[in-house]
Design a protein around this nucleic acid. Sequence first.
RNA 1: GCGCCUGUCGUCAAGCGGUUAAGACCUCGGAUUGUGGUUCCGAUAUGCAUGGGUUCGAAUCCCAUCAGGCGCC
Length: 379
Amino acid sequence: MKKDLMASVFDNFSYDLVHIDSKTGARAGILHTPHGDIETPIFMPVGTNSTVKLVTNHHLYETGAQIILGNSYHLYLRAGHKLIEKFGGIHGWMNWNKPVLTDSGGFQVFSLAHLRKISEEGVEFRDPKDGKKHFISPEISMEIQQSIGADIIMAFDWCAPYPCDYKTAKEAMERTHRWLERCIKAKTSKHQALFPICQGAFYDDLRKESAAFVSSIDAAGYAIGGLSVGEDKETMNHFVELTAPLLPHNKPRYLMGVGTPEDLLDGIKRGVDMFDCVLPTRNARHGSFFTYEGKKQIKNAQYQEDFRPLDENCDCYCCNNHTRAYLRHLYKCNEGTGQALMSIHNIKFLIDFAKKARQAILSDSFEDFYNEHYTRVIS
RNA sequence: GCGCCUGUCGUCAAGCGGUUAAGACCUCGGAUUGUGGUUCCGAUAUGCAUGGGUUCGAAUCCCAUCAGGCGCC
């Protein structure tokens, strides 16, 4: 049976594929959105509760962030999407004038597994804070995300766990597809782009089927979901390599929830354009920081009298102003300023890393860039 | 000077004759991937102020010494 071509309606979005690296297939492009252009490959900082934890907008702009994430599930619980709508959507609410992407809450179906019940209709959640029950369906997720008003909104999907038996993986994928059709029908706003999400867990045939399904929909961009959920890197790379080329070439591809500097290299190499991850901010809160020589832990004794910046090749606010010894002191004293400064560093590190990768692609030398950095950047 | 009390990891401590000498903090190391996390995991005292003694067996009982606290001259 031939499926009718569906369209996720959107205005003011387009993607220019500027250059493809001749040796690797890595892509450089520009995604145009109502709140500005996004140069890809891009790393997008995560700001679940309409703030990138510990980082002010002022510093966030300074990192060169071109787009940030919010989470519709968490914003629905607090502060409430209707309240945010009254402030002109998330841009007015948090006073951020660049693009925003909201996740649908689909991932919380996976990450808060013990607090939910899934049915064909949708998912019953329990508020982790007060235990109160809530119900989110594809339609409700669209309603929430339209009120929040991000530029890019995500389909409400079912991210299967890892490991996952074939039957469950297939069920999750098929339901994700049905939910995608419901999302498309429920979405009415034209100033937002809805990204479908490819699922299929860790089965080649399911991944191929899902990639074909989402590609049959006319959308402004496409996401690869359900990866980086506990599998090893080799496995993840295999499924990115399998999936990415099956998605429309003239649209951006977003690998959800990834990742580390080495994951960015691996993803870009396989044709991924967009990444997001909580790691830079979470790691910063826990004291570890990215450098071009690998990840390090600021609380280690070796930094007690280290007068260097976190990374000598970084020009973030933190590296321009403070030493490792000072930052270590702040962590030892449990001063939140240290975490805030290191969050700025880690975010800028990944944003710059993606930007450098982009330059390498534009000069058709991404393979050299990959080889130069891959082993160094791994801890 | 006399009397009483106390001495267990860097710190605070459990232990009251048979324990692999708890636990907490600190210190040290490691995790973290569409954020329920300033979170989670792991390591660290062959030794209980020192020296003797009693006992099959002592951080635990006895004696001496040293150190600290309190009280009285």
